[in-house]
Structures are given as structure tokens and as C-alpha cells.
């Protein structure tokens, strides 16, 4: 039952009756060209990616270099701001623009890293549960219940306490608490696919279980996994920000946006840009990823008429 509640929340449409025969490439090409949100998200994300990769190289700014005599300078549009520090400086006299720019890399790394970890855990468990059924399914369902019921934030705080915070630890902690969607979707897809004629045929001619899973089942779940993956990247980025905000995520001086917001929090009334700017950066990135994800969901859903109108 817990699978079903979950599915409903994720895919309000009658998702589980769909089986995809098209490759993700064909799907995207066929439908994405007239989906506005998808195109906008893709464009925005590409721009952010380019910024994150090439920005620091071209602009030659350092997020770590401090000048304690130039602390808390206002951004250029405020009184007293200069073009030298477009977004002003933080409490340690570091270039805030450089810190936000570098923060993009951190967020993207963690977002994609954590979604990958979550995907590996979720899809493995989901395919096993769906393919083998029976007690394997029961155990997986129990694990899922445990994971859903555990307040993720509390678990993450404890684990980060345990191993000591670093980017890798944060990636794994977030990944380890975000595999439910992957599991539910890959499980139900596997259940549907394994009873199809060609899979039973493959099994009849002596293909091993592993071969069937790798060759027949996994490739057929890809399009749905991609949708989940995109949405999970956005969720993971927000999660990292929350953890860093509470002081149990990324360690200073690494410029994580959540950490920047936490550091600027005390000065909220006097230097509000310290929290507004990284907040906007975070928002833009997550919006672009979510629009891409929503777009992917729409275009990969054959039942969807609205987006084609």
C-alpha cells in the first residue's frame, strides 16, 4: 500500500498502466520541441552550467581570499558599493560574487551526486523487489517504510555528526535518504515488464536473471528514471542547503549557498543581501531543474494531452 500512496503523490495520472516502447531520445525529440517549460528550464540550466564551469576561470576571482579590512561591503547597487565587489563582501571580507559563483559548483555537484547515489540504491532495490517479488518485495517494502518514516533531517544530522562533514559525506547522506521515488517507479515498471512476452521468452531460452534485468528490464525503465532523477537533483540541492543552514552540512569556508544564508542570517536586518542573493541563486537553479523535470514528465507521458494543445 505504501507504494501506491507514494505513486499517487508522484504521478497523479494513471501512471502505472503505461509501458513505454519508445527510447527516451525519441520521446524527447518528439514532444519537447513544443513544451515551453521544458525549453526554458533547459536553457536556464545550460546557462547556469556554463557559468559554474567557466565563470570562475574567466573572471579570475577567488571565493576564499579574505581582506579583513573590507568586511561586509554592500553590493554595487547599494550606497557605498563598488564594481570591484559586485555583490559586496561577507563577514570575512571575501568577494560575495565569487562565493556565490563557486557555490553553483557545490550545489550542482551535490545535487547530481546525491541523485546518483539515490538512483543506484533505489533502482537496485526496486528492480529486485519488482522482479523477484515475494519476501524480497516485503523486505524492500519494510526498508522503504523505515526510510519514509524517519525524519530525514534528523538522520542526516546524526550521520554528518558521525563521519564528520565533507562534500562526499553529504552526497552519500542525502542520497541514502532519497531513494524512495526511484524505488517505487522502478519496482512497478519492473513488475509490468517482467510479464511481457519477450521477457518470458528470453527467460525460456535460458537467459540468466541478471541478463534479463540488465538487458530487458533496466533499459525499459530509463525514461521514467530520468524524470525522477531530474526532480531528485532539485530536491537534493534544497536538502543540502537546509543541512548547511543548520550547520551540519558543508563545512566552511567552502561556499555552499545554504551556509552563506546561515552566515548571513544574523545580519538579516542590516545586510539582507547576504541571504537574499544566495537565496535567489538557489531558487533559480532549482526552478530551472524542476521545469526541466516537469517538462520531461509531461513529454514522456504518452497520455498527456494538455502539453500538446
Amino acid at each position: 500500500m505504501i507504494f501506491k500512496t507514494f505513486l499517487k503523490r508522484l504521478f497523479p495520472r494513471s501512471f502505472d498502466e503505461q509501458i513505454y516502447n519508445l527510447t527516451p531520445k525519441e520521446l524527447i525529440i518528439r514532444k519537447s520541441s513544443n513544451h515551453g517549460g521544458f525549453k526554458f528550464g533547459l536553457f536556464l540550466l545550460t546557462v547556469i552550467f556554463l557559468f559554474a564551469i567557466f565563470g570562475p576561470v574567466i573572471l579570475d576571482v577567488s571565493p576564499y581570499e579574505q581582506d579583513l579590512t573590507k568586511r561586509l561591503l554592500p553590493p554595487v547597487w547599494k550606497e557605498g558599493g563598488t564594481w570591484e565587489y559586485i555583490f559586496g563582501t561577507d563577514g570575512n571580507g571575501r568577494d560575495y560574487f565569487a562565493r556565490i559563483l563557486y557555490g553553483t559548483r557545490i550545489s550542482l555537484t551535490i545535487g547530481f551526486g546525491a541523485a546518483c547515489v539515490g538512483m543506484i540504491i533505489g533502482v537496485t532495490l526496486g528492480v529486485c523487489a519488482g522482479y523477484f517479488g515475494g519476501w524480497v518485495d516485503q523486505i524492500v517494502s519494510y526498508l522503504l517504510t523505515c526510510q519514509l518514516a524517519l525524519p530525514g533531517l534528523l538522520l542526516a544530522m546524526t550521520i554528518v555528526f558521525l563521519i564528520g562533514p565533507s562534500i562526499t559525506v553529504v552526497i552519500f547522506v542525502i542520497g541514502a535518504t532519497h531513494w524512495a521515488f526511484f524505488l517505487v517507479v522502478s519496482r512497478s515498471a519492473t513488475q509490468k515488464i517482467k510479464n511481457l512476452d519477450y521477457v518470458t521468452a528470453a527467460s525460456a531460452i535460458g537467459a540468466s536473471k541478471f541478463q534479463i534485468i540488465m538487458k530487458d528490464i533496466i533499459p525499459n525503465t530509463v525514461s521514467q528514471i530520468i524524470v525522477i532523477f531530474t526532480l531528485e537533483v532539485g530536491i537534493a540541492i534544497l536538502n543540502e542547503a537546509s543541512l548547511s543552514f543548520l550547520g551540519v552540512g558543508i563545512q566552511p569556508p567552502t561556499p555552499s549557498w545554504g551556509l552563506l544564508i546561515a552566515e548571513g542570517k544574523e545580519a538579516i536586518f542590516f545586510q539582507p543581501w547576504l541571504i537574499i542573493l544566495p537565496g535567489i541563486a538557489l531558487f533559480t537553479l532549482v526552478v530551472s531543474i524542476n521545469m526541466l523535470g516537469d517538462g520531461l514528465r509531461d513529454v514522456s507521458d504518452p497520455n498527456n494531452k494538455v502539453s500538446e494543445e
Partner: peptide, 10 residues
């Protein structure tokens, strides 16, 4: 879309 992308501490 906005509500989904705004962290609630912010």
C-alpha cells in the same frame, strides 16, 4: 514551481 524551489528556512 516557485513554492517547490524555495527552501523554507529562507
Amino acid at each position: 514551481v516557485t513554492a517547490q524551489a524555495v527552501p523554507n528556512f529562507w
